[in-house]
């Protein structure tokens, strides 16, 4: 079944006399039918703008400098590559958790949220080591400042979403679980894709842009 088919269409409202009866409409909906999806899209746009402009700042300052990196040397690749592999892999349990949420299957949701949380914590640990392998301090020069803040912005979002994932895992134990919590879980999975996708350009900038 495709994702589109998993999101059922509306039960139409029924006309009764001069009124439109909406009593039988669903009390929540997934994906773009839910208000949460729109709110989440707004938040992703906001953070996406911040990420995008941090990257613009990087290339702007690079274009003005005679030597880049202006201090230190390019970051070591090892931990960045581990993070890249892990974060790409995390998309799979994330997809499965999202699908389980669409099915409103608490057991499967919980299982995959655990996997997501564990990978998320691992990512945070690897991220710590990434900071130690940047080969530059934030106060060494403009290059150092830029990549520290770029990595820091992504880390802020990473940590927030890992915390969200753990809170949502815990919420599945608070009985009863309302349908709308599954919408929240599905939206959290959507947000995780944002973390994964934004990491790709940020990874390239932090680890590769200074090597060419």
């Amino acid at each position: 079944m495709t994702r589109r088919e998993r999101i059922p269409a509306s039960v139409p409202a029924v006309r009764r006399g001069d009124a439109l009866d909406v009593a039988d409409l669903p009390s929540y909906g997934f994906a773009h039918r839910s208000l949460m999806w729109w709110g989440n899209a707004g938040m992703m746009a906001i953070e996406g703008v911040a990420f995008g402009f941090m990257i613009v700042i990087y290339f702007y300052l690079q274009s003005l400098s005679l030597q880049w990196p202006d201090a230190g040397k390019p970051a070591d690749l090892l931990f960045g590559n581990i993070n890249l592999a892990l974060i790409l892999a995390s998309a799979i349990p994330n997809y499965l958790a999202g699908r389980a949420a669409l099915d409103r299957d608490t057991r499967r949701v919980r299982r995959w949220l655990y996997v997501c949380s564990i990978i998320g914590i691992a990512l945070c640990v690897v991220r710590w080591y990434e900071f130690t392998a940047l080969n530059v301090r934030w106060d060494d020069g403009a290059y150092g400042s830029t990549i520290w803040v770029l990595l820091g912005l992504h880390t802020f979002n990473l940590v927030t979403d890992v915390a969200d994932t753990m809170v949502l895992t815990a919420v599945t134990y608070s009985k009863p679980v309302e349908g709308k919590r599954f919408v929240d879980i599905a939206e959290n999975c959507g947000y995780w894709y944002f973390i994964v996708l934004t990491w790709l350009p940020i990874y390239v900038v932090v680890y590769w842009a200074a090597r060419f």
Binding site: P8, P26, S27, R104, S174, E178, K180, R181
Partner: peptide, 17 residues
């Protein structure tokens, strides 16, 4: 964090999509 009483009420009348 969900309020258990509110959640129980909500489950009693919610309609699935």
């Amino acid at each position: 964090w969900p309020n258990k009483k509110e959640a129980a009420e909500e489950v009693s009348w919610e309609t699935e999509p």
